[in-house]
Amino acid sequence: MKERVLELLAEKEGNYISGSEISRRLGISRTAVWKHINTLRQEGYQIDSQTNRGYLLIKSPDLLLPQEIKRGLASCRFGQEIIYLERVDSTNQKAKELAVQGREEGMVVIAEEQLEGRGSLGRSWSSPKGKGLWFSLILRPPISPLDTPKLTLVAAVALAKAVKRFAGIDLKIKWPNDLLYGKRKVAGILTELAAEFGQVDYVIVGIGINVNLTDSDYPEELKETAGSLKMITGKTYNRAELLRVILLELERAYFTYLNEGFAPIRSDWCTLAGTLQTRVRITDRNGSFEGIAEKLDEEGRLLVRLPDNTIRAVLAGEVNLLGER
């Protein structure tokens, strides 16, 4: 009900709404209205109240509260249920716990701060409080476990499209799970799954986006390689608004993949990629090698031409871009 009170305040767009109108439209008492208003104030909403005029929403907090995200959310499934945490070790870990409990596809776990955020190959991900989007999405796709790596590519396409649509910034996808601006990493994806007997139980898509971080927010070892949307444009972005766009693009890309197959995702990925036709060094658990990243195949593998002119298909690993071919 608190969320519905907020919706009515937001509807007025700078005008007052009386307590009696809120009471009538929501079917609650004036005392209940007052209690919900006070709760919203405690959460950081600036709400003015005037005798004979009612309540006026002056400013919303820069917090990723469920009611802020859902206000104007266009996705039908993704983000309809949101778990909000001020601080957590890892949103992926929390999402896995909820998935095991049977929570539905589309649930989002989001935190203002991660203490043990992780990227690819177990590396830590810097996730300072209130500066980025650190969230995880529960999926239950009816696909083979062998096809789940494609979901990382699906998410990368959705993120690149969302950032372009929201901020006008062209991020490039670095296979398989990073988004770059120039040589700086702005976003990353960590996909984890649980499966048995050849069937997927759940997939967790963890996403970290550096939104409003500045150079001073990064540890010394990341200052030359990490970036943010704010560092690119100098603008401060509303994180809840950006998340709404991302959830919609994720939902569109995910169901495009499920309904039409990987081909349309692969086409978009190739258009948005910054990896193809460049010299790369691939590092996996068996070592490293260099070559030319030529294309993405129908299985989502990166095809790399080696110095001896043979082609090697890479399903997992870390890519370092070495420059033009």
Rank of each mutant, 00 (worst) to 15 (best):
S60F: 00
D62W: 05
L64G: 06
P66H: 12
I69L: 05
I69N: 03
I69M: 04
K70N: 02
G72V: 07
L73P: 01
L73G: 01
A74S: 13
C76Q: 14
R77M: 12
Q80H: 04
I82A: 07
I83Y: 08
E86W: 04
V88L: 12
V88H: 05
D89W: 08
K94E: 15
E97Q: 14
L98T: 05
L98V: 04
Q101Y: 01
Q101C: 10
G102N: 11
E105S: 15
V108N: 10
V108L: 15
I110N: 07
I110Y: 01
I110W: 00
L115R: 08
G119P: 14
G119N: 12
G119F: 08
G119Y: 11
G119T: 10
G119H: 13
S120N: 14
G122L: 13
R123G: 04
S124K: 14
S126H: 10
P128G: 06
G130R: 09
G130A: 07
G130M: 04
L133W: 11
W134R: 05
W134H: 05
S136K: 07
L137E: 09
P141A: 04
P141G: 01
P142V: 11
I143N: 04
S144Y: 00
S144Q: 03
S144I: 00
S144V: 02
P149M: 08
K150L: 13
V154Y: 04
A156K: 08
V157Y: 05
V157D: 06
L159Y: 06
A160H: 08
A162Q: 08
V163A: 01
K164M: 12
F166N: 05
A167L: 13
G168P: 03
I169G: 09
I169V: 14
